[in-house]
Design a protein around this nucleic acid. Structure first.
Lengths: 328, 328
DNA sequence: TACATTTATGCTCAAAGTGAGTATTAGTAG
DNA sequence: CTACTAATACTCACTTTGAGCATAAATGTA
């Protein structure tokens, strides 16, 4: 006898504007399916949630079509790039289960759009790094990181001697405290570590205890949505390197500096301008249009355009940002 | 009103032996849940299927645990490395739907094990390249590829003039016929292209027509399992590059040649021996044990071992096979 | 024992790619 | 005309890669 399972869809809809990565969030208080009984943990908490929609096997031929349809309907925008992220089904991930609701399995998608086009009631763009502040290294080591390291040190010490070594090892791998240095791709691993260590408030919410007993980091999201966001950010960072996906996030004509800012925003790293330029030009991903952008304040920048043909010519390499030239 | 959805799990269980990548398959005739009414398309066809199991929300706390449990139960082996691949839910992907069955959503996983330990009734190891013969370039251009190119040319020509260009472009990207050259990672893209072009027999089976009208390539699998296999092979090829996953597939002690053979088997490429050695040694992924393997036939090879510590020290790079040194 | 054979391992070298600068150019604002 | 700003160009040491040649340590055979 198989108990009930319900299938939903979640979307991490990313855009970049003003050199910040943005994620589209909705206010869960506006979502009709959340019963009031769940109390301050969800409703009334003002927590941001990712937009989500149902998967109806009677209507929807494929998951991706279902997603496209309701995102289109909710945001009045065509999303270009869509990719399946991960399927979440852990017990207890949806608090409605506690009220006798069905097990909710969510298939999460990543969507990339050009910001500005979207403006919907009950939804807004928020800075991704508000939720994951330790991920933004563009201004050097994030402020939060020292405090975070201390809190993690506490967590390491809170275990028996035997496990401390393992915990320390994991912390060092995730946050690059060892010889390894920072690895921008391990976004999810870091979030999950912080969750386990009780350093994000979702940990306490899931325990049914809205008051964290100790420091917590970053703005929380409803349900496990911050975990999903972390999955999405990690994915886009990885993808940047080997697929030309940045171009989904910018206008058709752009300056190389503009392109670099988008890459920096997503990767959370500052890049070396001249080398970035060399990398992008030599990759053959772009072509100059001959026209100039003179809103720069200094010498005008040439406007470039993505060469769609590269998909045919080469191995469509992406801008190699994270592996590529750092710092300025 | 939401129609019924059932959630299942599929596993692409990979191993490497005798320099061949193997996938664990079961005989779908032995699966009780397949009704006879489905006829020659599935039952009695002798088609191989991927092992699959149910997800029962009443029992299973997480998808991964559910998967581990029934794989353990079916194969009597602990699988070490497990990773979620993709969730498949397209309408019509399970032929039981046609008989009024529920929509079946499958969460597919990739598992890596050391072969030899598994021996279960109704299941056997099969060569991955039996199903995807065009993916094996170790002996140079696969034989099938010329015939395949001709068949694809036919498909291109079968469309109206306007679409031909697009079709040709897609074929060139996928199979590297253009300037691009072969890209080992696009396993799924290639399978999907062949499916669309009617060049795999699943296309005809799904049409309800068991006799293909034209050439088809590779051994078929039941349902959409060959697509899932392609997803898995593509994933492991990608992962090889940047995570030290090969070591999940080999014994604790190994020679560098043995390691190379495993990488070659999965990547489908022949590598340059001396450079592979240099790459692996310099990566710090392995350490010599001082002991020798003298079953080589020539000079004995030193036995190496994976250094688990690297996970802490560096960015755990993987053997960079595909990007790395080719040919011999 | 000397020697061919086989495979492992070591070394070299040119070409390409990368990190980190300095230098020059073409605008704007005063 | 000049100071300032940002874009673009060029340089240079260093590392990584692709490809091959050379040597080492086993085996089997004349």
């Amino acid at each position: 006898m198989t108990a009930r399972t319900e299938v939903g869809l979640n979307a991490v809809i990313l855009a970049v504007s003003d050199q910040q990565p943005r994620v589209l969030t909705v206010d869960p208080e506006q979502l009709p399916e959340i019963p009031d009984a769940l109390g301050p943990g969800i409703k009334g908490s003002g927590l941001a949630a990712l937009p989500s929609g149902p998967f109806d096997p009677a209507q929807d031929r494929t998951l991706e079509l279902a997603l496209r349809n309701w995102v289109q309907w909710q945001t009045k925008t065509d999303i270009g790039y869509v990719e399946q992220l991960y399927t979440f089904a852990d017990q207890g991930r949806d608090p409605r289960e506690r009220l006798g609701g069905p097990r909710v399995l969510s298939v999460a998608y990543l969507a990339l759009i050009k910001e500005g086009t979207v403006d919907v009631a009950h939804s807004r763009w928020q800075d991704c790094y508000a939720f994951l502040p330790w991920e933004d290294w563009r201004g050097g080591k994030p402020e939060a990181i020292e405090e975070l390291a201390a809190a993690l040190e506490g967590w390491i010490g809170a275990d028996g001697r035997a496990n401390r070594r393992q915990r320390r090892e994991r912390v060092e791998i995730c946050f690059g405290f060892g010889d390894a240095g920072w690895d921008g791709y391990q976004v999810l691993e870091r979030y999950e570590l912080l969750y386990e260590a009780g350093l994000v408030s979702e940990y306490w919410l899931d325990l049914g205890d809205p008051k964290p007993r100790g420091p917590v980091f970053g703005a929380p999201m409803a349900y496990d949505h911050r975990r999903i966001l972390a999955t999405g950010l990690g994915r886009i960072r990885g993808k940047l390197r080997y697929r030309p996906v940045v171009f989904e996030l910018i206008e058709r004509d752009f300056t190389l500096m503009g392109l670099q800012h988008v890459v920096e925003a997503l990767s959370g790293l500052r890049l070396h301008k001249q080398n970035f330029r060399r990398l992008v030009e030599r990759s053959g991903l772009v072509e100059g249009t001959g026209r100039l952008d003179n809103r720069t304040g200094g010498r005008p920048a040439e406007l470039f355009r993505f060469r769609r043909e590269v998909l045919r010519e080469r191995r469509a390499p992406g801008v190699g940002a994270l592996a590529g030239p750092r710092a300025d």
